[in-house]
Simulated assay, not measured.
Amino acid sequence: MTTSQKLAGKIALITGGSTGIGLATAQRFVAEGAFVFITGRRQAELDAAVQQLGGAAAGLQGDVSNLADLDRIVAAIKEQKGRLDVLVANAAIAEFLPVEAITEDHYDRQFDVNVKGIVFTVQKALPLLPDGSTIVLLSSVSGVKGSAYSSIYSATKAAIRSLARNWAVDLKARHIRVNAVSPGPIETPGLNALISSPEELAQFKTQMTSVMPLGRMGEADEVAKAILFLASDDSSFVTGAELFVDGGIAQV
């Protein structure tokens, strides 16, 4: 991985950083000179990710939908490093049901992690973010596209896009840039776990790629490179934006 140290000396927090897009982003950030805190709910996965990342990373176990966990995570970062320069709010879950089958639990779980988790991750981290720092929120093409059984998940992702717009205004006096990244179908452990049948998973991927201009699934590192762009000074005049990394699926 060729690097130019775009994040040299920076301190970053990536929620949901133990697998998939979060881990790929942590790898990019470490390679570019940052010290990275990652969070995850499962200690074993978190430990494995930290070992993979090396000495410029630390893992903080916790659930972003639990405000006490967030308080503990932010307190640990303050004690260990004293500040944050980059915040990537990536932790999310996805569940799919048709409208007639939606339950209160289905609704609450996704909004608690995907929206409440992002709101309070950002709010609680703000005292550690100096003026001129950057925040990247992970949304999805689902926030702008309709698809079967995904109404609640898609609604959470549309909410994240709205948060990026509004916080870009709220934080403009502090010159804190807030942007959203919206991936399309990406090869990650999380996506592969959504469908238990190998045949149905292959069918899903075939269907997805058939309507994508680039004709293939994306890789986690391709999203990580977009997040790096928004986290670094390369995007110094970009705020309130949504950057699609989707193979064109939501663009044409």
Rank of each mutant, 00 (worst) to 15 (best):
L84I: 04
I186E: 12
P130G: 05
G22N: 11
G22Q: 09
S235L: 02
Q207H: 08
Q52F: 00
V178D: 06
G82E: 10
G55N: 10
G16S: 09
A8I: 05
K205R: 12
V113L: 02
A94V: 11
G20R: 06
T209G: 02
F37L: 03
D47K: 07
G16H: 10
S140G: 09
S147P: 00
K145C: 09
E45Q: 11
E199M: 01
P213W: 10
R42L: 13
M212A: 07
P183F: 04
A12P: 14
D85A: 04
E95N: 13
K145D: 10
Q123C: 03
L60H: 07
A164P: 05
S65H: 05
P213A: 04
M217R: 08
L70R: 06
A91I: 11
A94G: 15
I195A: 03
E95C: 01
D69T: 02
N192K: 03
P185W: 01
E200S: 05
S235Y: 13
V238F: 01
V122M: 04
E242P: 07
T121W: 15
V88P: 15
S18G: 12
S139V: 02
A94E: 15
T103D: 09
L194P: 13
V86H: 08
R161G: 04
K124C: 07
A164W: 09
I195P: 03
A226K: 06
V30C: 10
G82H: 12
L126S: 08
K116T: 09
M1V: 11
E219C: 01
D69I: 03
R216G: 01
V223W: 05
M208T: 08
I11S: 05
V252Y: 04
K116V: 06
L228C: 03
V113Q: 04
A101P: 00
Q110L: 02
A241E: 15
K124R: 15
T156R: 11
Y153S: 12
K205H: 13
A173N: 15
F244D: 14
E219Y: 08
R28D: 15
M212K: 12
L191T: 04
M217D: 07
I135E: 13
D69G: 03
D69P: 07
K116N: 09
G117L: 07
V119G: 01
S197I: 00
T103W: 14
F37I: 02
L97I: 00
S162Y: 07
A58P: 00
T19Y: 00
Q123S: 11
R41Q: 15
P130M: 00
G215H: 13
G117C: 07
D85Y: 12
T3W: 01
P130R: 04
A34Q: 05
L23F: 03
A49Q: 07
A193D: 12
K157F: 09
V211C: 00
I118R: 01
V74Y: 14
L163C: 02
V86K: 08
Q43T: 09
N66I: 08
A75P: 15
Q43C: 03
T3E: 06
I176G: 06
F237G: 05
I77D: 10
Q207R: 12
V122W: 08
A159C: 09
I152F: 05
A76K: 12
D234M: 03
K225E: 15
F237K: 06
A31Q: 14
Y153C: 11
A49V: 10
V245G: 08
V136S: 04
G117H: 07
A231R: 11
F35C: 02
A58Q: 14
K81R: 15
A158R: 11
E187G: 02
A155F: 10
K116G: 06
A24E: 12
D47F: 00
A26T: 11
